[in-house]
Design a protein around this nucleic acid. Structure first.
Length: 294
DNA sequence: TTGTGTTTTATTGCCTCC
DNA sequence: GGAGGCAATAAAACACAA
């Protein structure tokens, strides 16, 4: 059969190739069930035969050729001219075909490599995202807890102040607001309201502007010149006294309270802004405040 | 059998290196 | 300027579902 193989006409050759195809299906694509020599002979015959018939048509390389090329690619994915010529001769291919095969193989390898890199990066990203989401949830929970605690603290302090003093922090806050509006009224001239008030009152008394000690004394007595202004002031004496009492308490004893308020405000600012932006994507978290406390 | 998507072989044009 | 590599692409071969 093999002895006469080269003598059979082309039709018979086609028939044999059909036979081979049937055998391929039976044994699987990579195991034809023929010897390597026979397979190589079929490949070369097919090439010679179809090389004339299928001019300009693409032909797939045989499995043996591909295997040999793959082996060479594993050794070195670049092809020197000597190796290219040697391989081409061994496999019965044009050197250009070998070069093109290596070029396409490198392209396939690169694509696979990109896919591998992508899957690795994606796995990393997914892990980090999971971690980030968890931290974000924790952060929100802590911020909510902090808000509740602050509200509770505010209520507690209001209750304790209300029982200890006549003037609750709320009423003091109201007074503060009134005072602020008063400041705005007076500061229209561009001067300090308190200073202006003192100046006005003193000028009515005829006392010196520079006598601040006297003013402080009168104020501290609670029976200040304001009370003895004979109704010259546009403000009622009681309200003036209250105002100066507030002013006094604010300037002397109330300073602590005001500072406390400011500190609370600062803390609140820190709590809302810094805690909310702590895990901001744009800004890396800094733990200086945390390490400082530690 | 056929339409369609995928793989493989080959070409083209551009770029870099010697 | 020629050789070789690479990206983009064409086109043939192949796989497979309907």
């Amino acid at each position: 059969y093999l002895k006469n193989f080269s003598l059979v006409p082309q039709l018979t050759l086609k028939f044999l190739s059909l036979l081979v195809n049937a055998e391929e299906e039976k044994h699987g694509k990579d195991n034809y069930g023929y010897s390597k020599e026979f397979q190589a002979m079929l490949d070369s015959l097919d090439q010679e035969d179809c090389g004339e018939e299928m001019t300009g048509k693409k032909r797939r390389l045989s499995s043996e050729q591909v295997k040999a090329l793959e082996r060479n690619f594993e050794v070195e994915n670049k092809l020197e001219p000597e190796r290219k010529a040697k391989l081409a001769e061994e496999l019965g291919l044009q050197p250009r075909q070998v070069a093109i095969w290596f070029q396409n193989r490198r392209a396939r390898w690169k694509t696979k490599q990109l896919e591998r890199d992508y899957s690795i990066l994606k796995a990393d990203y997914d892990g980090l995202k999971l971690n980030f989401d968890s931290l974000e949830r924790q952060n929100k929970a802590l911020a909510e807890k902090l808000r509740h605690l602050k509200a509770k603290l505010c209520r507690d302090s209001a209750e304790s102040n209300g029982s200890a003093k006549e003037e609750s922090p709320i009423s003091m806050c109201k007074s503060s607001v009134m005072e602020q509006s008063r400041h705005q009224d007076f500061s229209d001239n561009g001067d300090n309201a308190e200073v202006n008030l003192f100046k006005n009152l003193k000028s009515k008394d005829g006392s010196s502007d520079s006598d601040s000690n006297g003013v402080m004394k009168e104020e501290s007595n609670g029976n200040s010149s304001l009370g003895c202004n004979n109704g010259h002031s546009s403000l009622s004496s009681n309200s003036m006294v209250n105002w100066f009492q507030l002013s006094d308490s604010r300037s002397v004893a109330g300073k602590g309270f005001q500072t406390q308020l400011v500190r609370m405000e600062e803390q609140s600012l820190f709590s809302t802004e810094e805690s909310c932006n702590f895990f901001s994507v744009d800004q890396a978290p800094t733990l200086h405040w945390y390490s400082a406390e530690q």
